[in-house]
Amino acid sequence: MTTLDRAINQDKLHHSSHVIAQEHEHDEAGNSMFGFVIFLLSESVIFLSFFAGYIVYKTTTSDWLPSGVEGLEVREPAINTVILVSSSFVIYIAERYLHDKNLWGFRFFWLLTMAMGSYFLYGQAVEWQSLKFGFSSGVFGGTFYLLTGFHGLHVFTGVLLQGIMLIRSFLPNNYEKGQFGVEATSLFWHFVDVIWIILFVLIYVWQ
């Protein structure tokens, strides 16, 4: 290779990798999504710890149920479960509408997701009201309220995030820099959903 060739080649390589470097740096939405996913993975370990604790208590405690408590009513929480799990599909539809740039379709299904999430929280509040045991009723009461409460806090956060995303959808040029907010909220919602399924099986099905 002559010196000139080399120089040209170098220049080409230089140029192309410079472009790569630029893209590399400015893929901020990609960074945010990556960061959010590893955050959720980390967050899931808190739930796993609580679940592990629950299993240990459930299998080793001699007087598991507090006196006067027969067990948990499954019917209402099962309806709640169906609603929360379905909302994961609804939020997916909302995302598809946004993808097709149909903003009103997005807003409708997004609001529907929020309504379903809110109903879930309402249903849980009603259930808590009717229970005969409290947070300090032994490890049974403690783990029950800790798990459902910590999960409920996540549902609440999810609905709050959805509200922010809904308001932001009315801002002009909101989606110019991509849809990270909507995608992350939706991912968070699926996460909260999966956690609930495990939680429902552990607490309500396995009695």
């Binding site: 993975l41 980390s42 899931s44 370990v45 808190i46 710890s49 604790g53």
Partner: peptide, 10 residues
């Protein structure tokens, strides 16, 4: 990322 949440839970 995988360890700290356990301490937080505890």
């Amino acid at each position: 990322l995988f360890g700290l949440p356990a301490l937080t839970a505890g």
